[in-house]
Write a protein that binds this DNA or RNA. Sequence first.
DNA 1: CAAAAACTGTACTTCCGGTAAAGTGAAATG
DNA 2: CATTTCACTTTACCGGAAGTACAGTTTTTG
Lengths: 205, 205
Amino acid sequence: MGKGQETRERLMDIAEASVLTKGFGATSIDEIIAAADITKSGFFYHFKDKNQLARALLQRYVDREDALLDDLFDRARELHDDPLHAFLIGLKLFAEMMADLPNGHPGCLVATCCYNERLFDSDVRELNRKSVLSWRQRFLTELENIVEIYPPKDDVDLEALADMVSGTVEGGIVMSKALEQPEVLAKQIMLFRSYAKLLFLPAYN
Amino acid sequence: MGKGQETRERLMDIAEASVLTKGFGATSIDEIIAAADITKSGFFYHFKDKNQLARALLQRYVDREDALLDDLFDRARELHDDPLHAFLIGLKLFAEMMADLPNGHPGCLVATCCYNERLFDSDVRELNRKSVLSWRQRFLTELENIVEIYPPKDDVDLEALADMVSGTVEGGIVMSKALEQPEVLAKQIMLFRSYAKLLFLPAYN
DNA sequence: CAAAAACTGTACTTCCGGTAAAGTGAAATG
DNA sequence: CATTTCACTTTACCGGAAGTACAGTTTTTG
């Protein structure tokens, strides 16, 4: 990584932490450059404006989350051949990971974008949409493998059910932040897991 | 309502619409006063600063949502004596109401506050916490009445389950906004309802 | 060593949140 | 009927933040 990329990443690290705790609007460029010990011109050499920073932040964020989920559910599939059990293990691992964050989940940039729409251009909105759709696709595939073996005990739209994973995480983060209780997020994921058990597992009656 | 109250409400109406679509940071006072046809000093006569506006907005918002949910679940209890069935009817009515919003749910001020922390003082954060806790209490009471009759088919923490209602709504709103598909929210509420059925209804096996 | 990359320095513009203080018309109050 | 209070307007100003312009300087790299 060249020196330019290094500085760029450093700026993004500082910005991301600030955006996730204070919101995008409350994160000033002056503050970022002070923390990064760089001049304003230096900042604008890397990002032509705040929108470009947002775009880069979101792109990096969704790439990382994607890689993280890939690892996690790959690992779950290594632990169990059956798609349902692998899914349930994956959810458990996910919940544990969320519970292990010492100060709670820092927040989700996707949600930040939703509640700060105006700050972002159509590129950012599109990127946001795509990332949510990729989560939908990821879990939909997983669920399709499950229903082939386990007929669901209630009439559910698999696409909506796939979205429920993302929704549970987004909602859980909001609840955790509002209540200032980090453990809420993990508990919500475990409740979704309980739903998956009741819906698919034959033993449950 | 005196003339002062009328102007105040008008300012809040304009501000609320803008905050929910663009976020708090992107909503400028200049823009509000232009739309309300009032001077800047006029605005600051009603609200001493932007924090006070946020506080008033959030208070009004949670009061309205509370009244709305009171009506809805009261109505559901009129339609069925059994607490579980009344709860399921209430959820259905809720989902229908969310589906009927022509342009989708405008967004939730509670979540807006979570993703704009810095803009708000501790009063606002406390108000936010209280409002989430009041939803928790509302649904917890409902669930306690249910478990007295219907033993749950999985080991769940009722408090977390009560929070899942709020979480589903918050998550559903984020998903709807990110995907630009208003129907997602109602579908998510119906999935939570499906979970409640599987968890409590004996007929399901 | 030369060129390109990665900045610094200075100066300026616009928008926004917020303050200060004097003034004004309408309506309530005594 | 006079006076006070309410609900503003007018004018002028301040500081912070985003962003521009552009010339100059250091650092890296081929």
